[in-house]
Design a protein around this nucleic acid. Structure first.
Lengths: 336, 336
DNA sequence: TTCGTAACAGCAGACGGTTGCAACCGATCA
DNA sequence: TGATCGGTTGCAACCGTCTGCTGTTACGAA
């Protein structure tokens, strides 16, 4: 800018105003400046602009892991909306660690992001770092992995109804002894999906059987152990609903190795609709969660807040999931 | 900082020096300032620091799409190294569009990133935007999807040898008529993998047959069309090597639907080692490309350049791939 | 006593922009 | 003729941090 000013014999402030298309400049001066700027390939320094305006036009995103297809979809949605609305995005992954999550927040706050989009790590069981953001009046929105008590906006899936749908589907296909393979019990989704599972059972008059609720630590070993354990149960279950697709895929692979036929010997369903679930053999019945849409909604709401388009009061957006019926659950054919 | 200074009755510069642990301050003053800073929960404004130092400690990354598992892995590697070396990362996706790619570069440059890591979009066939970066002396490293002529550092996979390995494997399993399903011919990887394919054929004394090279536009429709076309060939090929896993998965799914047995009727192999390739039935033989490692190497080299640890001269890092043999290619059992 | 010096702290300017306010200009009007 | 006014431009301060230089003080040595 200084160079443009020198070249044209005007002041830096005039250049600044010309580039902002300020109405109080002589039209000819403005034209000349804009032209010179183009010619000299001038690009404003966003850092300086941000410092001056104390608005960085940058958002921070924290997800447990980028390589998960679901979170990658969310990020993609966030990116697309943020870009069209003139914001940049800084992405961090917590690697499911609360310490990393805190560090990420620090970094992003120091970087003066205008707002944050956070999906909590599995390890996160204390929430001071979030309350601190709240106290500092830093805008943020929680999505997918949320903490319910914090008074900020949240975007989640209707996990209860998703689980209800899929378990109902298993029940409608004739299964009665249905296992729920849950992740660690303190996880938000473990609880919610269990709720949907129980609701469906109740609706069909099936009594809850605690031995049918199996916990895995979500590692491959944990998943395989559960897979084997289910086969050794006294009265073999007719169907298994896994909290997330990767668990279902591990179970499916293990059972195939052991010669169990799916769905003839036992029906199987997952949750998330990962790409893998469509290509395994048999294709896996699951519940689709549109991550891209979730990202879009979360970022739209955050930006509305930042731009004063949304009320200050936190809202909770609950997205519906869609049951995706594939062969793995068709134990007894549905009547058509 | 101003507040700390006021509270303790010292100047802002003294505070600044104290927080940098400058040796020319009285130790007691320093202690008091650091303490006050902690108490007041002071966080430096990275924007101001960057403006002042003209080093933003931020890197820009441009990938064709975040939701691809391979690129997500790269990003993950980039993140991990960048974080440990004190850098932030801004990620953009070009959505395989050259216009978006150019826009991303503009944004990141305006944001004063210290360097860029770029994987080119499929659409990118002109390179002025990259030469402009070069002329402006902005550090950047190309990875995976590169342009060979630009004098900057690049990290790539040895596509030729990867393709060679997998085709050799197919040949060793007795196939002679082997189809190569290529993406658009101007793509870097289309060319390189074809080279490896041809080299393997030549080594086994198999003449090149142009009708065995099939082009897909990489859409689902394109892939299915090729899948069907292959089955109608006069003299049915014994094996098919697809340029990337998603194509192979589409082909596999289609063939299964048509009752073709893999590998008994025809052997199949892909490239990339996507998560899906391990879980399809039969599991897909493919070539593993460690994306995480690639990201780590690319960013390490970029940071070395920025920190003056690497020579100015561009280098080319070529990563080896690993053949992953699974059932889909075992047309005739390998002798053990 | 005087001088040099080390130890410490502050002023001011810079990074690259933005903006309130003052200043200048010629023209218009009483 | 002088006051006023609208149009146009520049000065200077500011955003938060860093740092070269200067100034002050106390102390020991000459």
């Amino acid at each position: 800018m200084k160079e443009i000013a020198k070249k044209l014999g005007v002041s830096v402030s005039t250049v600044s105003r010309a580039l902002q298309d300020s109405p109080e400049l002589h039209i000819e001066t403005k034209r000349k400046i804009v032209e010179a700027a183009k010619e000299m390939n001038y690009r404003p320094n966003l850092l300086a602009q941000s410092l001056r305006s104390s608005r960085s036009k940058t958002l921070g995103v924290i997800v447990p892991e980028i390589t998960s297809h679901f979170f990658a979809s969310c990020i993609s949605g966030i990116q697309d909306i943020a870009t069209t609305r003139g914001y940049n995005v800084m992405i961090c992954q917590s690697n499911e660690s609360i310490a990393q999550e805190k560090a990420n927040i620090q970094t992003l706050v120091s970087s003066q992001v205008d707002g944050l989009l956070i999906s909590l790590s599995r390890q996160t069981n204390t929430y001071e770092h979030l309350y601190e953001l709240y106290d500092r009046e830093i805008n943020f929105v929680l999505f997918d992995r949320v903490q319910e008590d914090i008074p900020v906006s949240k975007v989640t899936f209707n996990d209860v109804s998703g689980a209800y749908q899929v378990v109902k589907h298993l029940l409608e296909n004739g299964s009665r002894r249905i296992v729920y393979v849950s992740g660690p019990e303190d996880l938000y989704i473990s609880k919610k999906r269990k709720e949907g599972y129980l609701r469906a059972l109740e609706e069909f008059g099936v009594a809850e059987d605690p031995s049918l609720i199996q916990i895995t630590d979500l590692t491959l070993e944990g998943n395989l152990q559960v897979a084997k354990h289910i086969l050794t149960m006294d009265h073999r279950p007719e169907a298994v609903f896994c909290m997330i697709d990767p668990v279902a895929v591990d179970v499916l692979t293990e059972w195939k190795k052991l010669g169990i036929r799916i769905p003839e010997d036992i029906a199987l369903a997952g949750f998330t609709n990962n790409p893998s679930s469509a290509v395994v053999e048999p294709p896996l019945t699951t519940v689709a969660q549109p991550g891209y849409e979730m990202g879009k909604l979360a970022v739209s709401h955050l930006l509305d807040q930042l731009d004063g388009l949304a009320s200050e009061d936190p809202i909770s957006i609950v997205l519906d999931t869609t049951l995706v019926v594939r062969k793995s659950s068709l134990h007894f054919p549905v009547k058509k």
